[in-house]
Structures are given as structure tokens and as C-alpha cells.
Design a protein around this nucleic acid. Structure first.
Lengths: 233, 233
DNA sequence: CACGGTAGGTGTACGGCGTACACCCGTCAA
DNA sequence: TTGACGGGTGTACGCCGTACACCTACCGTG
């Protein structure tokens, strides 16, 4: 009559808590609360389990973060094989960017984990390797690929460190916002730019700055620069 | 005969602990141990003071981090007034990079604090404002400046997210390093590139990759791209 | 069928963190 | 003389990651 109970009284008819379920729960929690709202304790709670249970599936929190990065990297589309290097790179980077827009906490985690290890996560390594492969297949000499990686920098991974987070559109009036006249007095050029961008009839998209357009603009400029370099060798 | 004692028995003849001293101590501690080795408790200890004493000078740890960023931004050279926009930007960015090389923990702090606030720290705002001013003075239309900022991305602040930290030269053999043949099998393109770079006779500088050169290469490529854009308007 | 090993969930406990709150003592103005 | 106040102190709370011992359901083997 009783539900098949296993491992103590608290655990009744619960899916068996694999590493996959753990990572998914962690990613979900990070998606909704940012990476700061991610503790072993509340991941465990979300899974209906005691904190220490997680340690049967990951060695420690860092390993969990590494696992989460793996999950994210799997969301990036594989390279298309039937086009030139430029559009292949372009598509792939934009796919990576799409992933990162879904998981805004990812850049910080990737960065911090990369610095804490001697090398990036294996998943990131695979991504970079295949990226280099695309350049090589496109005729880039190795040295030029090397430069290309440095030129593209973090854009290779789909983010380029937007300084002003796209916080417009949430509608919440910032309590300690600076009055416009003080703003203009203190940072005249920023203000001028903000005004101009806001009134640009082309970009009536919320924040007044079409991030997607800007990203592609920058990406194309760097790719064009690389192409010119390639043509010169 | 006794040293002028003030505020309890523990505090004897100690400089009066201003916000400046607090920030300096914090920056010094971060410089030598990374930003993780930075707790209110050990900053206090370094200053010979009880942890709660710090809160008489900063509201909380975040405010302290903001203050540290201010200190760092002050290390960046002011723009030179007597040259064209390109070299002015170039010099300034390289100066910023110099600062960041002295304080490797800075990018992460700047980034995280920027995301936690609605805008970057005032000091960073001033830097950006003056940077925009340089472009404007150089003849850039506002829209083009806007694009320029996006193109340069984090490079504007002197960092561009080097993925492989320059850990060579420390000489410590990494305990869990991958054997070369496995490396080559798993990441063929990365390996090829690493080999090529390592054997480049030009760059016999330790890591085999002259970071400074790469940084300037990328910077110049982007600046050239912008220049071509400017000439087209 | 008994039995021991093992995989996986549990409970307790420790040291470190940021910081709220009450306190206390020189200094200096009135 | 007094009283406000700036600045250092001490205690305590609730988080965090995680070491360690335990307990139990299961499974392969004798």
C-alpha cells in the first residue's frame, strides 16, 4: 500500500537525481535569479533534497559551475559545413550570442572558471578548436588565425562586454537616478550620445539602441578587417 | 611616558584610518592575493583594526569595491590634447591596459560592479565620457561614435578578455596537465596553433605569444576599421 | 536464501563570510 | 562642566561551502 520508499523517509517517489538533473536545476536557478542566487543549499531545496546529496554527483561547487558551462556550450549550433569561413564564423558566433542572451550570467562564470583553471572548460576548448579549424579551412595561415583570435577576443564567445546593461523597458524608475541636467553637466558627451541614439528614428526598439545590430556591426567590422588581412598574404 | 592612546587599549599610535588608507589597503591586498582573498575581515587585520571599524568609512563591501575602482581609474593617464583622435585614443587605451596589468583582478570587479549598479562607477563614466569626447573632437558623428564604442567593446577599457591567462613562465608544472598526444588528438587546431606560436622566432618572449603585440595589433585593426568608416562619411 | 558491498540520500558540525546593533571612550564646542 | 559626536570595539546572526559519519535500499555472489 505504501509508496516504494527509498533512502530514508523524506524521499518518496522522486526521480533519482542524476548529474544531468542537478545541472539542469542549477542552470534554471541561475537563469531566474542570476549566479549569485545559486547556492548548493537552494539547488538542493529546488530538487527536494538535502544539500549534501549534491556532493554525490559533483565534487564541489566549482565542478558544478564547470558542468553548467558544458550544458550551455551544447546549446551552440555546430558549424555549417557548406559555406565560406566568414559566414560560418559569423553564424556560429551569433548562435553563441543567442545562447548567452538566454543565460546572461554565463560570461562571468565562463570567465571566472577559465581564470581559476589553467585552461578553459573542455567544452569551451572544443568550441575554440572548431573555431580555429574554420579559419584554417578558410585559408588562414596559423599566425593569422592567432591574430584573429586576439582581434575577436571575447566576441568569439558571443559576448563583448556591454557596459550599459539593457535595463530599459523594465519600467521601474531607478530611485537614485541622476537628474538630466546634472547628467549633462557631468558627462556631456555621454549625454549627447544618449540623446542622439534615443532619437534615432531607425532604432525605435525600447532601449534606443539595437544591441543585435550593434553586435553584428562590430562583428562584421572585425571580420572585414580580417578579410583584408587575409587578402594581403 | 605612555604613548598617546586613543579609543580603547588596542589602538596605540596608529594612523587614523581614513577612507583613503582603507582603499589603498584593499587594493594592495587584492593585488597580491586576487579579489577572492579580499574580505572585510582581512582588510581590517591588515590595518590592525577590528572588522566593524571599516564600516565607519564605507557603507558596505560593494561601496568599497566601487571606491577601489575609482582608485584604479585615477591611474590612467589623462588624454593628450595635441594629437589626432587615433593616437590619443590609442595612448589612452594602452595606459588603461597598463593599469589593468598591474591589477589583474580589476576587469572582473569593474564588470560585476557595473552589472550590479544601473550604470558604471562615476570614475568609469568620466573615462567613457572623455573617450567619447576624443572621438567627437576627431570629427566622428555621434552615431559613428556610438558604433565605435560597440566595436571597441571591452578593449576601450584596456582589456579584451584573454582566454588563456599568461601562466607560462611561472615554471610550476601543472599537476593535471594533459599529455601532448591526447591534447593533439582532442584539440588538433589548438595544438597546431600553440606549436606554431611557440616556434615563432619573432616572439621568443616566454609564453611564446607577445600579449602586448597582440593587443596593439587588435587595437590597430579596429582603429583602422573605424578610420575607414570615418573617411566614408 | 543469506550476506556483504556499494551507490546514494541524510544529519550534524565547523570555519568563514558580510554586517546589524549596542557600546564605549576621547575630543571639542558651548 | 557638559554633552554631542566621530570613530574604534564586541557580540551575535544568518548565510555560505563542505568534511565526516551514518543509514538504507539494492544487487551480485556464495
Amino acid at each position: 500500500m505504501e509508496i516504494t520508499r527509498k533512502a530514508g523517509v523524506a524521499a518518496r517517489s522522486r526521480p533519482p537525481l542524476s548529474k544531468g538533473r542537478l545541472l539542469s536545476a542549477a542552470v534554471a536557478l541561475a537563469d531566474e535569479g542570476g549566479v549569485d542566487a545559486l547556492s548548493m543549499r537552494n539547488i538542493a531545496q529546488a530538487l527536494g533534497v538535502v544539500p549534501m546529496a549534491l556532493y554525490k554527483h559533483v565534487a564541489n561547487k566549482n565542478e558544478l559551475l564547470d558542468g553548467m558551462i558544458d550544458v550551455l556550450m551544447d546549446e551552440i549550433d555546430p558549424p555549417a559545413a557548406d559555406t565560406d569561413w566568414k559566414t560560418t564564423v559569423r553564424r556560429r558566433v551569433l548562435s553563441a550570442r543567442g545562447m548567452l542572451l538566454r543565460h546572461p550570467w554565463a560570461p562571468a562564470v565562463i570567465e571566472s572558471r577559465t581564470k581559476a583553471r589553467t585552461a578553459p572548460t573542455p567544452a569551451v576548448m572544443r568550441y575554440l578548436d572548431s573555431m580555429i579549424g574554420i579559419f584554417r579551412a578558410g585559408g588562414f595561415p596559423v599566425q593569422l588565425v592567432h591574430h584573429a583570435l586576439h582581434v575577436m577576443g571575447s566576441r568569439l564567445l558571443g559576448f563583448s562586454q556591454e557596459l550599459f546593461e539593457d535595463r530599459a523597458g523594465t519600467g521601474e524608475p531607478d530611485p537614485d537616478a541622476m537628474p538630466p541636467e546634472e547628467m549633462a553637466a557631468r558627462y556631456p558627451h555621454i549625454t549627447e550620445l544618449a540623446m542622439a541614439v534615443a532619437h534615432d528614428p531607425e532604432s525605435v526598439v525600447g532601449s534606443g539602441c539595437d544591441d543585435q545590430f550593434e553586435f553584428e556591426f562590430a562583428l562584421d567590422l572585425t571580420l572585414d578587417g580580417l578579410e583584408r588581412l587575409l587578402g594581403r598574404t
